[in-house]
Nucleic acid binder design. Structure first.
Ligand code: FES
Ligand code: FES
Lengths: 153, 153
DNA sequence: ACAAATCTGACTAATTTTGTCAAGTATAAA
DNA sequence: TTTATACTTGACAAAATTAGTCAGATTTGT
């Protein structure tokens, strides 16, 4: 699997924030209820997202989290990378420490393949924004008017 | 990371077999030396590859492993899936057991994204064959004639 | 018989994942 | 000013996965 629950849940939470964009701070408690993800775990994810400057926090009562910029400006790739670290097919394409380095990169035919795959993955993730997902979701929900929310997550 | 060392090393070994295709059985000992991967670990990987009918074995002295079909017939996707199981962006796209299932698939806007990403990944992996890699490798080695092998792994 | 090789299953240390928990700090509202 | 709300931080830990290792059994060419 490319993503762990960190990435999966984190993107879900960011989409939740995007849906409620412009409505003031959204509390973790509310997100937790809607998405069915543990409050404590969301806190952990939001540490990373805040550190990556994708969200900001408001403390105190009526506080919560907000997207730091418009949903149209936030690429899913940014969210995923903030949560999971660099996305790559194998280690040597995005080396994190010295032991990830291959010495034969310049002549390695497989490196070319893994690099091509890595680029494709990031391309897909970076060609989708939170706003794009919101729009797709609204289109989906038009076909199922019974549902109370604008669309399901 | 999309692939663990199982996938990374396994593809390396399969490419090694492809390079020596038509030269009779190749022993794990030789592959281990060339690729710098533990003999014991390669044995484990080859269990999966044999079970997936990608390689066959010849026992006894002068024995070893051979590709079961021509390098042009073997897609990297087949190799990777044999080693790592189904390749997917997140669990619910290729559910392995009941707890991987999401109940909201039909209305989930994120499922659409993860599915698109998963398809793209498999598309890249399935559009490359072992022969393709061999050819690319030979092209690379033409530019570095000093090297003893046809090309480096 | 012997040696070269595959084959099998058990075992394990290290790491990552998937969280939980407790004790803080900041602040808006009463 | 008090209080309740909500973010913040760091520690902790069970479970799963990764990345192998190892011992022994089996097969077979010479
Ligand atoms: S696998 Fe890293 S350079 Fe070949
Ligand atoms: S994440 Fe599985 S259906 Fe939405």
């Amino acid at each position: 699997m490319l993503l762990s629950t960190k990435g999966e849940y984190g993107v879900r939470c960011m989409l939740d924030l995007a849906i409620h964009y412009g409505q003031g701070p959204i509390s973790i408690r509310d997100i937790s209820k809607r998405e069915g993800i543990s409050k404590n775990y969301i806190e952990q994810l939001f540490v990373r997202l805040r550190h990556a400057k994708l969200i900001k926090s408001v403390r105190g009562p009526k506080g919560g989290y907000l997207l730091i910029s418009q949903p149209r400006r936030i690429k899913i790739g940014d969210v995923v990378r903030a949560l999971e670290g660099p996305i790559a097919a194998i280690r040597c394409v995005q080396p994190q420490n010295s032991k990830d380095l291959c010495e034969r990169i310049s002549t390695c035919v497989l490196y070319i393949l893994w690099k091509r795959l890595t680029d494709k993955i990031n391309e897909v993730l970076d060609s989708t924004t939170l706003e794009g997902l919101c729009r797709e979701g609204m289109k989906l929900s038009k076909h199922r008017l019974a549902h109370p929310l604008p669309f399901q997550i």
